[in-house]
């Protein structure tokens, strides 16, 4: 175990690294100055692309080659998308999909 002083230093160093990554862009493009057009383009195009990346990230340990072949994930994903297209209610889609997924991994597969 680290001593309290070392632990404090360790936590602060980790915090500093996170803050640097979160603040970097804002330091590079200060609010007072005109942000380059290409950066504004990226700012508009990135959210959709990054949401796709986050979804892939969530599923990164799902293997389609090993049992249960990603079936619980596929079924739950389909459920979330269909629920959301149908009812357009965030909470319903998220809760419905997650409960279905929990039932699938705990009792079915």
């Amino acid at each position: 175990m680290l001593s309290n002083t070392s632990m404090l230093l360790y936590v602060l160093i980790t915090a500093a690294a996170v803050i640097i990554t979160r603040g970097f862009t804002f330091l590079l493009f200060p609010a007072g100055k005109q942000t380059p057009k290409v950066i504004l383009f990226l700012g508009k195009a990135l959210p959709c692309a990054l949401m796709a990346l986050l979804i892939v990230y969530c599923l990164k340990n799902t293997s389609p080659l090993l049992y249960p072949y990603g079936l619980p994930e596929a079924i739950a994903i389909a459920a979330v998308i269909l629920l959301h297209l149908w009812k357009k209610n965030n909470l319903l889609s998220i809760a419905g999909g997650t409960i279905l997924y929990m039932i699938l991994v705990q009792f079915v597969f």
């Binding site: 970097f24 804002f26 942000t35 950066i39 508009k44 990135l46």
Partner: peptide, 10 residues
């Protein structure tokens, strides 16, 4: 997070 910042500049 650097990339998240790009979409939050505005």
């Amino acid at each position: 997070h650097i990339f998240y910042g790009l979409s939050m500049l505005e």
